[in-house]
Amino acid sequence: MSGAAPSDLLAAPLGLPATVVADLYRAACLAELDALKPGNVHGFAPGHRMGVADFVASADVSASSLAEAGARVGRRVRGGVEATFAAVGQNTNLGILLLCAPLARAAEEDGPLTERLRAVLEGFDGTDSRDVFAAIRRANPGGLGTAARHDVAAEGPVPPLLAAMAEAAPRDRIARAYTDGFRDLFEIGLPALAAARQRGLAPPWTTTAIHLAYLTGVPDSHIARKHGPERAEAVRAQALDRLARLDLAEAPVEALLAYDQELKQAGLNPGTSADFTVATLFLDALLAARSETP
């Protein structure tokens, strides 16, 4: 007889119940709102015709779908989007749900989270494709546009989810996450959070540190969709020049709010950076609840 030794089985991380996953998801969404994130909606200032209350409500009503025990990724995303529209009537969390749904499904299963996440990303079926495409059409995110292949708005058969994500990956970092094992979370988000904690920062400044790592590290896909890739890269470079030298330990609210107002007046919303910030907080909380390290 072969198999893992009893000690190995005892050491394997155990899956989390749906109630815990839902609570951690909701907490990640709310923690992101507490942080000053230039250009995005947060507790220090509204923006883009949305307020914090919209996102608080969205987190609350989407949590049960996001954490539905045994549900496939597509069902979680679609259910979350539909609940959000019923509550607030607009798209506030499609990107968050797309990033957090695979993490939630992986976290409810026994075994190392990174291994379970890989299995989830490799195990999509036709129902996932139909549900995710339906959710995207319902949310109708800004700047979606059209694609030569696997266009979400096109009539006809729904393509495999990973094929559609691979097609969009060069222009959308959330789609790319589905094809590269959520690399940005592990290589940008979690290291930024760990570094902020090592410096002695406390929330919400640890969350601001995550957001700034994405904002200054990679062009924001939401800005790229609405304003073009060149503008997205220009914002990244500008943010690096304006913000990278700030000491968050000094709580530089005035400097961050000044840049926040500048971005909002120009209609620039680094929404993908905010989505990845939520997902980073959620992943960190899931790992901690399962007593794992990344």
Rank of each mutant, 00 (worst) to 15 (best):
T293R: 14
G15L: 03
H211C: 07
R290I: 10
I223W: 02
A244M: 09
H211W: 07
F186Y: 15
A22H: 06
E115G: 13
L240P: 00
P13R: 05
R137V: 10
R149Y: 14
A244W: 04
S64N: 08
S291Q: 12
G156R: 03
R183L: 13
G145I: 03
T84R: 06
E262Q: 15
Q198N: 12
G80Q: 10
A101L: 09
E262K: 13
K264L: 11
A135I: 05
Y25A: 14
D172F: 02
T293P: 00
C29N: 02
Y178W: 07
G74F: 10
Y214I: 06
A166F: 10
R231Y: 00
E230L: 15
N40H: 03
V73T: 13
L240Q: 15
W205D: 01
R183V: 08
R116Q: 14
D125F: 01
F133P: 00
L9P: 02
Q90H: 10
P159M: 07
C100S: 12
D8N: 04
G217H: 05
R225F: 01
A28T: 09
D275V: 02
E108D: 10
D247P: 03
T208D: 05
A63T: 01
A119C: 08
A83I: 00
D180I: 12
R26V: 00
R105F: 00
A224F: 02
P203E: 13
P159Q: 11
A274V: 13
R231T: 15
A154L: 10
L263S: 05
A57G: 14
D184P: 01
P160I: 01
H150Y: 15
E68D: 11
S221L: 02
T92P: 06
L113N: 12
L33C: 06
T146V: 11
T216L: 01
A18T: 11
R231N: 00
P46D: 14
R138I: 08
G228M: 05
A192Q: 04
R76D: 07
